[in-house]
Amino acid sequence: METIQILIADDMEAHRRRLERIINSVGNLSLIGSAKSGYEAVAYAAIKKPDIVLMDIEMESPMAGIKAASEINKILPDTKIVMLTIHQDNNVVFAAFQTGIVDYLMKSAPKQEILEAIYSAANNQSPIRPIIAEKIRHEFARIKKSEDQLTHFFKIIANLTPSELEVLKLLCSGLKRKEIAEARAVELETIKKQVSSLLKKFNRNTAREVVEEVNELNLFDIIKEIS
C-alpha cells in the first residue's frame, strides 16, 4: 500500500503528540510536518504537499484552521483536509465544510476512528458522520422554515398601507407608540389604531411578537429600502 503523507496542524502540543503517536504507529502513514498555527500549516502544505492534513480550528485565532483550510484547498485541491476539533457549533461546522474539507470529527475520537478518517480521506470515501448529517438536516429544516416565513410575511407587507409600513419600520427600529406619534406628527390614538391593524394582519397578539419576527427575518433592512 502506498505511503500516505500527513501534516498535523494544532497549537496544543499534547494534541500534536497524540496524533504523531497514532500516525507513527502505522507503517504506511508518514508524518511530514507538525504545524502550530494556521499560517504554518499553509506554509508546510505549500512546501511538502501532504496527502492529508489533520487540522485544528482554533489556533492563533478562533477560525485560523478554517482560513488555513481554505488557502490550502486553493493551492492544493487534491490534498484532503480532516478537521479534528472540539467545536460542534453549527456555524463553525458549516464554515469548515465550505472550505472544501472532507471530514470533521472530535479531538476526543478514539485512535481507530482517526485512522479510519485518514484512510477514508485518502481513498475519497469520507463519510457524512451522523452528527454532521443531523446538523445538515436541521439546517435544511431551518432554511425551509425561514423561506416559508419570508414568503408569508412578504404577502402581508404587500397588503400594508404606506402609513402601516412606516409605523412597522419605526416599531422595528425600537420606537414606542408615543415616540412614533411624535415622529409622524399625528395623534397617539391614530398610531394605536395602525398598530392594532398591523397585529390583525400579522395575526399576532402583541407588537413585540411582530417586531421580533420581522427583525429575525431581516425584513427591516428590506422595509427601510422600499418605504
Rank of each mutant, 00 (worst) to 15 (best):
I157P: 00
L19Y: 09
E134C: 03
A68H: 02
A64G: 14
P62W: 02
V102M: 11
S25R: 02
A185K: 15
R129H: 01
S108D: 08
H152A: 12
E113C: 01
L19Q: 08
Q112F: 10
N205L: 10
I4A: 07
A121V: 04
L19H: 11
G38D: 01
S70P: 01
N215R: 09
L31R: 10
I23Y: 10
N123W: 10
I47N: 01
V102T: 08
E60H: 04
I86C: 09
K145H: 07
I101Q: 04
K111H: 10
K201G: 09
E134S: 04
A69F: 00
A35C: 06
Y44F: 15
H152S: 14
R16E: 07
I131C: 03
D78N: 15
A64Q: 08
G38S: 04
N203R: 09
A183E: 07
D11K: 12
N159V: 03
S146Q: 14
D51H: 13
P62A: 15
C172R: 01
E187C: 06
H152M: 13
I157F: 14
D56T: 03
E216G: 06
M12L: 08
Q5G: 04
S30A: 12
P162Q: 15
L171P: 00
E40T: 14
A43S: 13
H87K: 07
A35N: 13
E58W: 00
S126L: 15
I81P: 11
Q149S: 07
R129G: 00
M55T: 08
